[in-house]
Amino acid sequence: MEQAILLHNPGAGDEDHLKSDLIALIEQEGYACVYFSVKNGDQWIHQIDQADFAVVAGGDGTVRGVAKELVKRNSLEKKIPITILPMGTANNLSIALGIDSTKKNLDHIKNWKNTKRQRFDVGVIKNADSTDFFLEGAGYGVFPHLIQKMESVDKSKVENAKDELKLALEVLHEIIKTAKAEKYWIKADDKIYEGKCLLLEVMNIQSVGPNLILSPEAVTDDGLFNVVYVDETQRSDFAAFIKKRLNGEEVTFDYKTFEAKQLTIDCESTYMHIDDELVLPLKNVAILEVRENVLEFLVPQS
């Protein structure tokens, strides 16, 4: 009998997903299951080696919290694959891995016997003072402003994840109209890029934020970043694109983009973000590099 370790964020998403319900669903499909709430410390770290796979029940932030501990592991230690029961607002990581967040938990669990292991590279970002990592993306410009604004915006009329995603797009649209274009300089492998941008994102997967697909060609295991930027000349077009998204139109935007394995970035932006966390910009230039095949996810065969 395979042993699952269930790492649950009880506050994620639209509902309070009960511990007993999740355990029962997993056990009735023939798995042994041990449960930990990620809200109650990190005791799970000492038990994970006993498991055959980890189940993360939560949103993108919960997955990142678990991955943060697994990334620290020595390369000779047992590699624990992760599967996701998506319960967050955006679920960008689930989307990137082909895990349908609209399905019921039981449907996901029944499908675990028909999964494959998907390798997942992580982005490492460092300077002289610190080192961090990201799963989704890191960047400057309008997305850090969006994260900051969403912390204080009125959410009294938000009833579910769909409402919150729509609200985020509305706030983003307003930010784009007035945001300052930030000066940037990038060394990407052996090429130099510089200018002023409204958005500058180093993407590890296809989408960030409110399910905004910036790099549809991104894959999780190619050893490359997809760098995406919107310059000042595209402001009105970018705002119009977001407005059409708000209106439910299926539209795309012509982002400026290139691929690179290693980056050196100097940007004058007041803030930056690493995944969904708002951070102060690094004091010195940021060095970003791909660390290959660090994590493995269990994903649907199809």
Rank of each mutant, 00 (worst) to 15 (best):
L165E: 00
H46N: 14
V290I: 15
K183D: 10
V34S: 12
V290S: 02
H273L: 04
L76Q: 15
L278K: 06
K103S: 05
K104Y: 02
A239N: 02
E268Q: 10
V251Q: 14
H46A: 15
V202S: 03
M203I: 04
V227F: 11
L246H: 06
T89P: 03
E170L: 11
E277A: 09
N111W: 03
T62P: 02
C267K: 03
E15V: 12
L6V: 09
K157T: 11
E27K: 14
S75W: 10
S130N: 10
F134M: 01
I5L: 15
V202Y: 05
A32F: 01
H173K: 13
V208P: 01
K177F: 02
A188K: 10
A239P: 04
K19D: 07
A96I: 00
F258P: 06
V294A: 09
E217F: 03
K113V: 12
K283I: 06
A32Y: 08
V34N: 00
K162E: 10
D129A: 07
V34Q: 14
T270C: 01
F225R: 01
H273N: 11
S75R: 15
G88V: 12
D190T: 13
Y229A: 03
P144D: 12
N226K: 11
D14L: 06
A128G: 01
F143H: 15
N247V: 00
